[in-house]
């Protein structure tokens, strides 16, 4: 079965959220990957929509790039609402 293509599976849950990665399946083509994903990941009403994509088509960040990519946002606290202190009389904003 390993000669079959590995697909990554993404499922949208009922509540209008984004598709979320749930795991992977082996299949001969995308259509079969959808069928397998349905059997494997939605046996209990977990979703209303399935995406599959060949795993090989995903480009990912490398683990040694983590600092270069993500550290720069760490010291930009002014990007968060909680950075701005307002007096109580302004109420909820």
């Amino acid at each position: 079965m390993s000669q079959w293509t590995l697909f990554e599976v993404f499922i949208r849950s009922k509540h209008g959220l984004n598709h979320k990665h749930v795991g992977s399946v082996h299949a001969v083509d995308a259509e079969m990957a959808i069928e397998n994903a349905r059997e494997l990941y939605t046996r209990r009403n977990e979703g209303v929509s399935i995406w599959v994509t060949p795993s090989a088509s995903i480009t990912a960040t490398a683990s040694d790039e983590k600092e270069a990519l993500f550290d720069p946002s760490e010291d930009k606290v002014y990007r968060h609402a909680s950075f701005y202190e307002l007096p109580d009389e302004v109420g909820h904003m």
Binding site: L6, G23, S24, V25, E39, L40, R43
Partner: peptide
């Protein structure tokens, strides 16, 4: 299904 989740994790 459990077997398949696990084989995927192993892969």
């Amino acid at each position: 299904g459990h077997g398949l989740y696990l084989y995927s994790a192993m892969e």
